[in-house]
Design a binder for these strands. Structure first.
Lengths: 217, 217
DNA sequence: ATATATTTTTAGACTAATCTAAAAATATAT
DNA sequence: ATATATTTTTAGATTAGTCTAAAAATATAT
């Protein structure tokens, strides 16, 4: 499987998780920053290899074979991210680009041994689940900070948007995975919330609270 | 720089070390298991980028820029090999193929941090020197086992041929880097040598002794 | 229901890296 | 020194992945 094929599978997988139905050509093109015509070409190739189900104009979905391949790539990506943060002192906003490269390295032994070396981690540095060799993973049951009500609290366990800018925003305010967050007050007008974190009070906008996953305690 | 360009540079580098003069198109083709015409095409591309000196029919050599690029790839290859053996329990005959992939990952921070994480190793698992970030490395002054005379001894510090079969041959006989080896006797007829290693005596052919590097003590 | 807008596919072209076959240059042998 | 062999380059084709522009299919709006 080529790098490009792997990248398409991964993108289709991520889009499927979001939408839970057939994925459109344009959605893939947009997420990959490429053209719809290129997507059509590649989809045909993947369908030929039984990695996706495809009927002209009807969007695309992963076959079981394609799903396992996609999960394997996600597994590799997230294990490498964990490695970079835990062993090589990368910060969580620096890992994505390098993991995008490392995820394509082909060696079953490598990924098996890396997993062992890291102690079989279950979440990557952004709180996303790391699939095991069979593609299975457990999703924490978590809610968005924006869905909590006044007085409720929980542990910060993941981010929805893991863009560099958002992650750096959190770093600047010392909001890290594992922090306890409590809702002090919600402003109905702009839906901003006043939260208590690290013994400090902080007001965050809806855009922020809608990107923070909380495990309620 | 593409993977392919990097592989050509690396090959030219290795061939230059061996021959110490301009490298022929055919030599590159043979080492890379490709066709001379493909080599010519790529050489032109590398010359265009000022990575090699090239005059039609006269062979190629690396420019300073090309030499540094090549050493950087070798540095990455050997650091990853060290990582695989030291941290992921690979054996020295399993690392090459995976390192061939890992050497192409692009991230200065990655390789800098990996080097630090590994404790700035100076030799890879086969005893080959690991260049530093500037491309400098120290070559142990070592001799071939086949050049030692009766009664001389030293430490096994490297292999000349690091093919899987040769490395597995050594493993089978418990001949590992760091072992002390002493020449008990040399047979003039077939140039085989009787050596003492790990308290045992062992007869090895010229083909073997000619692939083992020794640091005399 | 039909016109209009949007999405998707197709047709044809481009680049990088490769190949085969033929031509050109260089090396070798007597 | 010249014929022969070898090496290297060129010319032209192929494949994977991409693109633009146009055509075809589907969705939307009134």
């Amino acid at each position: 499987m080529t790098f490009s094929e792997e990248n398409y599978l991964k993108t289709i997988f991520h889009l499927t998780v979001l939408s839970n139905s057939a994925v459109s050509t344009n959605a893939i093109a947009e997420m990959m920053e490429t053209k719809a015509s290129s997507v059509t070409d590649m989809i045909k190739k993947l369908a030929e290899k039984d990695l996706v189900n495809y009927k002209k104009y009807q969007g695309v979905s992963l076959t079981n074979k394609g799903k396992l391949a996609a999960k394997t790539i996600v597994r590799k990506h997230r294990l490498w991210e964990f490695f970079l943060v835990e062993k090589l002192d990368f910060s969580w906003d620096e890992v994505h680009e390098v993991a995008e490269q490392l995820e394509h390295i082909k060696s079953d032994k490598l990924i098996r041994e890396l997993d062992r070396f890291l102690g079989f981690p279950k979440q990557d540095p952004h709180g996303d689940p790391i699939p095991d060799a069979e593609g299975n993973f457990t999703v924490l049951n978590k809610v968005l900070l924006s869905d909590l009500k006044k007085g409720e609290s929980g542990i910060f366990v993941g981010v929805k948007d893991s863009s560099t800018t958002f992650l750096q925003f959190l770093d600047k305010r010392n909001i890290a995975l594992g922090s306890e967050i409590k809702i002090i007050e919600k402003e109905p007008f702009d839906q901003s919330v006043l939260i208590k974190i690290n013994e400090q009070e902080l007001r965050v906008s809806k855009l922020i609270s809608g990107n923070i996953y909380i495990k309620t305690t």
